[in-house]
Design a protein around this nucleic acid. Structure first.
Lengths: 356, 356
DNA sequence: CTGAAAGCGCTTACAG
DNA sequence: CTGAAAGCGCTTACAG
């Protein structure tokens, strides 16, 4: 690739075989550790390979290989997020299908129980599993370990399962995601005043981590007092009512951090209350509605976490593991925190829509 | 890929040929428009392909194809930026080399004249060119057009050549990059006061666009008065002197937008002047020094523009064009504006270092 | 421990 | 307009 020295034909196993007066099968053996080769021959082959700068041809390899690899994928995510993850999966599929990869996708489970049942169903068909668990609980952790024990490597994404022996996790660090929101809020509120934290009714580990990160950042770096977390849920009217109560109780409040997926309703509530100008909103993720809120200046910033890559990487990692026996270098890929504001929205919006 | 319908072997050209009692050569002809095929046969083949859901196998295709494709790449960029671009190039190379792609890279030119000369040198060897021009001038534009006329498709990256008939541009929109910096500055300075703009001595189109974007954003959205642009250059002492003059002249100044690549020196100047706390810095791009400045809180934010992708995409686009005859859907890929602050630095830092 | 041969799914002359 | 055959660089039984 370097400089101008080009044009020479690539070295093949055949070249090495000819040079050493060996059969190509023997050469293949030393590279793939199948069958046995005398130490002397082995040495010669490796040396010749080094000398001729041999790089195996993946095309030929996978074309001739008989083994296929079937990867199961299971997740339950809101549609607008899931569809972005899916584009990453699709990309990986197109990249690897000619190499013998097949995908079995299950995404329509309603709860953890059903997710487990669906994964069990696909078990006879798959050699590996990529899964976005609902919550990092013990039961699901045990389930994952049982899969691993039965020889199915597992990669988690979007939501980790740290107690399990998963091969890898691909997704956000939710504490950092919270700190990030804290830093933005700090800038928007000019280091002072009060900021409220909004969560949803059920407890979710993710959300708890976001809240903790947010609070920590502010207490370490800012004069802003964080209030809450407030559980805000229900329909439009009920959200408006709850937001109103919060603002009445904390008249100094000039920012709201929405750690849940309720950003749109909170924004609408502020509008209904005529408090839009006064209160800065920070939340997560991009969809059609969030984009509109950013454009209108009704949300100051939203933090995204590479949804596309959360689909692509697990498939890639599992493929490499199954087909090449390659262990991932680290045991997690933490996605970047993408700070999206009005002026840099359009690039992320395009990506979200899939017209890159 | 969808659902559970898996396991069936992929349809091949052989399957289609057998089903229709044709030779595989004929089937191949209809897919690749080589040689002539009777309209009737053509119809039958296409119908069968649709019915059997035929997808050609890229592996087999490129393994048997005789044509190679040699892509020339020419850029002159600061090392720390260039090395990130290069990782994208490397990635594309690894993805496509088995498909018959070779790269000829030239990156050591000192000026435009030399860059043109070096490209001329590699001309006999290449089928396409990806180039990051120094400045979007007319002369270089004519040069690019002459290449295109002689049958060499050209993709520009990092720096566009809008007057030329290049196939595509991959890189930043510098006006938007300026607006983005304006929005950040507006938040950091709480919508008021003065912000200075720092550029370097020579006029560069890029930098002019950044400055214009910055000013426009502020005048449309903020109470901040933009001052400058000030030409700041030379060694450490001279930069410190110039920065000092600016601050003396504009005592209200609480932010500096560095549109040039002088961020480190300006930051050091502020430190030497004891004005670090008072003045918020915003600049571009990530390298080891910028990362350190962000960690220390001496720079508030830096805007990056997907350097990795600026290397990857041009190679991919040219490969698809040469080997598949595929025209790009749009004629530009505008990279995203990545807002990097202290709390979300580490993800970008890792990417910059290449240990993803 | 080593080799000869078939085959993966396609393209490419060559022949008709 | 169509077909038979060799070949791309590897893997995979099978044989020795």
């Amino acid at each position: 690739m370097r400089g101008y020295e080009v044009k020479e034909k690539r070295t093949t196993k055949i070249d090495i075989a000819q040079k050493l007066n060996l059969s190509i099968a023997t050469v293949d053996r030393v590279f793939n550790n199948r069958g046995s080769v005398s130490p002397r021959t082995r040495e010669l082959v490796l040396e010749a390979a080094r000398e001729l700068n041999y790089i195996p041809n993946k095309n030929a390899k996978y074309l001739s290989k008989k083994v296929r690899c079937n990867i199961g994928i299971s997740y339950l995510l809101p549609e607008w997020f899931g569809s972005q993850v899916e584009r990453g999966i699709q990309q990986a599929y197109e990249e690897f299908r000619d190499f013998g990869m097949q995908l079995i996708i299950s995404k329509d489970a309603l709860d953890e129980k059903e997710q487990i049942r669906k994964i069990r169903e696909m078990l006879p068909e798959i050699d590996a599993l990529a899964v976005a668990p609902w919550e990092p609980g013990t039961e699901f952790s045990d389930f994952i370990n049982s899969l691993i024990d039965s020889g199915i490597p597992v990669v988690t994404f979007n939501n980790d399962m740290p107690l399990s022996r998963r091969l890898m996790y691909v997704g956000s660090d939710y504490v950092v995601a919270g700190r990030c929101a804290g830093q933005l809020m700090d800038a928007f509120l000019e280091h002072r005043g009060e900021a409220g934290i909004v969560i949803r009714s059920e407890h979710l580990t993710n959300m708890g981590q976001r809240v903790a990160g947010f609070r920590n950042y502010l207490s370490e770096n800012s004069g802003i007092r964080a209030q809450g977390p407030f559980k805000v849920h229900g329909n439009m009217e009920s959200v408006a009512e709850q937001v109103k109560e919060i603002l009445v109780r904390y008249p100094q409040m000039r920012g709201i951090f929405v750690a849940s997926d309720n950003l749109v309703r909170v924004a609408d509530a502020l509008k209904a209350l005529g408090e839009e100008e006064k209160v800065s909103l920070v939340g997560y993720d991009l969809n059609e509605e969030h984009a509109e809120l950013l454009r209108e200046g009704r949300v100051r910033s939203v933090i995204c976490q590479e949804p596309y890559r959360q689909g692509y990487e697990p498939v890639k990692v599992l493929f490499d593991y199954l087909m090449e026996g390659r262990l991932p270098v680290q045991n997690e890929i933490i996605t970047k925190m993408e700070i999206v504001m009005r002026e840099n929205l359009e690039g992320y919006y395009k990506e979200m829509k899939g017209d890159v």
